[in-house]
Amino acid sequence: MTDERFVVVHPDAGLLARATAARLLTRILDVQSVRSPVHVVLTGGTVGTRTLAALAQDPVAAAVDWDGVHLWWGDERFLADGDPDRNETQAREAMIDALPVPAPNVHPMAARSEGVPTPEDSATAYAAELAENAGDERAGVPAFDVLLLGMGPDAHVASLFPGHEALEAAGTTVVGVHGSPKPPPERVSLTFEAIAAAREVWVVAAGAEKADAVASALGGAPVTEAPASGARGSSRTLWLLDAAAAGGL
């Protein structure tokens, strides 16, 4: 895991989304020039979904070999399949349905159902799916080429919230979350162990309401107070911000 973090600031949220989409497409193409498959972890939230929509509309997307791209999620709201608040639902509408990604390459976290009644059941199933695709990686997950993370005003990333017990999950790659301070209360999230296995972690944040959290996380606040401070890739960590979110730096 690298300690160095790079900060890139864009004028506004719209340009941030478009620039992040272009950056992601470029990164996928760069990786595909040397190896396959490419593993990308998607994020939800307003700017995350705008980024996915911008990617689907970018002409460069046609140059990607989508047969060689696998899509994962950093966290999910534990709701029924197709619920509009699920990150998967929003990502399919914004990007996935518009691209020729083979269905087996899309790896959503299991939704609430009779067969999956708890977040822990979903977490266990996802951990197994990650392990099946991990190859020789010791972390139990693929070496994600890019792991996208949004960040909340409280500096949470994925569904790892300040002071929450899920922050301390160890020996596992996915954890069930209960009592989330942000609805819905039940969620499923990658752990910091899984996040740290990513080659590159990109934290994407927009809006003045995020400025204090950005300053806190980049200023060295402990993970218990600002979970985003612990989101780091093994080779590169990027913070992609709009000017408002960077206002406290």
Rank of each mutant, 00 (worst) to 15 (best):
D3Y: 07
E4M: 00
V7D: 00
V7C: 00
L15N: 06
R18P: 00
T20R: 00
L24N: 00
R27M: 05
L29Y: 10
L29S: 07
L29T: 01
D30S: 11
G48H: 08
L52M: 12
A54M: 01
L55H: 06
V60P: 01
A61R: 06
D65T: 07
D65P: 01
D65S: 06
D67T: 13
G68L: 12
W72I: 00
E76M: 03
L79P: 06
D83V: 01
N87M: 12
I96S: 03
P104E: 14
N105T: 14
P108N: 12
P108I: 09
A123E: 05
T124F: 04
A125G: 11
Y126W: 13
A127K: 10
E129C: 10
G135C: 14
P142L: 04
V146Y: 07
L147N: 06
L148W: 14
L148D: 02
G150T: 08
D154A: 09
F161E: 00
G163F: 07
G163T: 08
H164T: 04
L167D: 01
T172Y: 13
T173S: 14
T173W: 08
V174P: 01
V177F: 04
P184I: 13
R187Q: 04
V188A: 03
F192A: 05
F192T: 07
E193F: 09
E193L: 11
A194S: 05
A194D: 09
A198N: 07
R199P: 06
V201D: 02
A205M: 04
A208P: 03
D212M: 11
A221G: 08
P222G: 01
P222R: 03
T224D: 15
A226L: 12
A228T: 03
S229H: 05
S234P: 05
S234D: 13
L238W: 12
L240E: 11
A245N: 11
L249V: 03
L249N: 09
